[in-house]
Design a protein around this nucleic acid. Sequence first.
DNA 1: CCCGATACTGTGAGATTTCTGAGAATGAGA
DNA 2: TCTCATTCTCAGAAATCTCACAGTATCGGG
Lengths: 232, 232
Amino acid sequence: MSTPARILVVDDEHSITDLLSMALRYEGMDVRVAHLGRQALEAMGTFRPQLIVLDVMLPDLNGFEVLERMSRDMAGTRTPVLFLTARDTLDDKLRGFTLGGDDYMTKPFSVEELIVRVRAILRRVHGDDDDGRLELADLRLEEESHEVFRGTTAIDLTPTEFKLLHYLLLNAGRVVSKSQILDRVWNYDFDGNANVVEIYISYLRRKIDSLGPPLIHTVRGVGYTLRPPPES
Amino acid sequence: MSTPARILVVDDEHSITDLLSMALRYEGMDVRVAHLGRQALEAMGTFRPQLIVLDVMLPDLNGFEVLERMSRDMAGTRTPVLFLTARDTLDDKLRGFTLGGDDYMTKPFSVEELIVRVRAILRRVHGDDDDGRLELADLRLEEESHEVFRGTTAIDLTPTEFKLLHYLLLNAGRVVSKSQILDRVWNYDFDGNANVVEIYISYLRRKIDSLGPPLIHTVRGVGYTLRPPPES
DNA sequence: CCCGATACTGTGAGATTTCTGAGAATGAGA
DNA sequence: TCTCATTCTCAGAAATCTCACAGTATCGGG
């Protein structure tokens, strides 16, 4: 990682900006927060972010207006945007933006997924070396195509299973607790109990560990970890 | 360790703050104590801790309110927090904090474990040189992955066995008494008899000393110690 | 070498944690 | 609206862990 990526997070809900600034900082990014469209515009000039996480609904200007003024101010290159929107406000306009390299997510989202997308955008724009492929022993996960293989057999995962495996792979060799998993992989407003994690671990095992030596290990009283099988 | 880490411990129970300030000071840290949210806020400004151990339930403000006011005062970087909470009060809000590198423990905890976590946070934030690997002769314990090896063979330990070995390794070469072990490794409210220590030492020996020259030694009338085998 | 003190460990009951099957709820797409 | 895939709850089963008890072994001083 050369110089940390600069991200501007714009949302009027403090709980969201807190959540995201913490999570993105934890990922080693340089984060600035704005709660109003005007603040966002100002930060554009001073902070010069490489990516904006932008709530569509803001008290003063909406996300599109912010973008419009932005491109009026800064001639030339446009900063990529990851829009946040309520599920039921899903504007058709938004869909159009994905064409331009922008992306969007509906609230409530999972932090894991948001970070995946932030990284994907940065990778595209900045031509990062990271190729979005995660591997452990003969297990392979392709971020772009959303495909998972064990050896040569393709494994079909549901969205949640995929996110969970992705998170485990990112932390391969480290034990992650059930609550860490819950925080990252599930939507931030999920308030069910940690038993879901066990259940999805169980699903993953059925699909992945049945094809070879087990990679998913329970560390009793602590959490779960992905570990390559012992060489023999 | 260059300059001692500054830790602020906030809890209204004096027995807890006493216990922790003693243990953390013994670890070479610079400890300050507060018993109320207001005191904590004040200490933030004057003491500028690098980490806060914060009880969620305080008489005046709760832990979250303390944090909120804190981040209002100090713009920018937030001090990492290790929350303490009663097991049955396990607030959903807490869950979200593990995202930002914060962590939490439920009371009653073991001092040993608390110190492990404090160190883990400091290591992350301050990029400590300590890599969380403990070694003695051919015995190796990895904190991150919770793995233990003797030579190349992996050793499977239960949570208590792991904590005990961890403590012994931290004090390798020094004799620790059974009551010291009981105080550090077991939850602070444990009131069973000291024979458990003997039992767990026995378990460890079976798993560890059976694989090579013995490393765990009894010092009759005093306690136990970990010592490398004599070269030969 | 004997004896009391101290430490070790086999057995097993009870507690805790994790796993998983069955099925209800949800939501997307036909 | 119906269908199907998916998510998630519930609760019992299974696995694992903790710890007390008590008998045995070991140590070290006399």
